[in-house]
Amino acid sequence: MNRKRQIEIWVGVFMAIGFAALFLLAMKISNLGTAYSGELFHVTARFDNIGGLKTKAPVTIAGVEVGRVQEIRYDPDDFRAVVVLGIQGQYLGKIPDDSFANILTAGLLGEQYIGIDPGGSEDMLGEGSEISMTQSALVLEKIIGQFIFGKKKGSGTE
């Protein structure tokens, strides 16, 4: 019976370690632990070009994450991308509605995210409101293309 008890203890230890590992995977290694799980409110923004922006990309104000990109779709009526931002409930009514949404890049080749520059309006963004002032992503190829094209043109007229 003693051995039986020992086996039971070891199996208990095994199960505990296993489930602890699963828990750590979820909370420490994946985004589940960092994900904001409270109330969100939704704001849309339209961009001419979103570049490499992906859903779940961070939304920041002054570099502090306040939300995440929830949905990206294309609106065929005005040929623009519609981006739905999920912003943490604590900022409801605290972001002016003339704020400016930029698509920025972390580092030279890093991931793209949305930075919001607060405006000066008295009215605040609420559920379902839209940010009208947006700045599209800087697409590196385009800039390089313009640069090369412009130079070629210059040398061609010479």
């Binding site: 699963l22 995977l25 979820a26 420490k28 290694i29 994946s30 985004n31 589940l32 632990g33 960092t34 994900a35 779940k56 961070p58 991931e111």
Partner: peptide, 18 residues
């Protein structure tokens, strides 16, 4: 740690791994 937590998605990575 931040790069890891940003990159690894619970549903896509952890659940699929399990």
């Amino acid at each position: 740690w931040n790069g890891m937590q940003d990159g690894i998605d619970f549903n896509d990575d952890i659940i699929n791994g399990v």
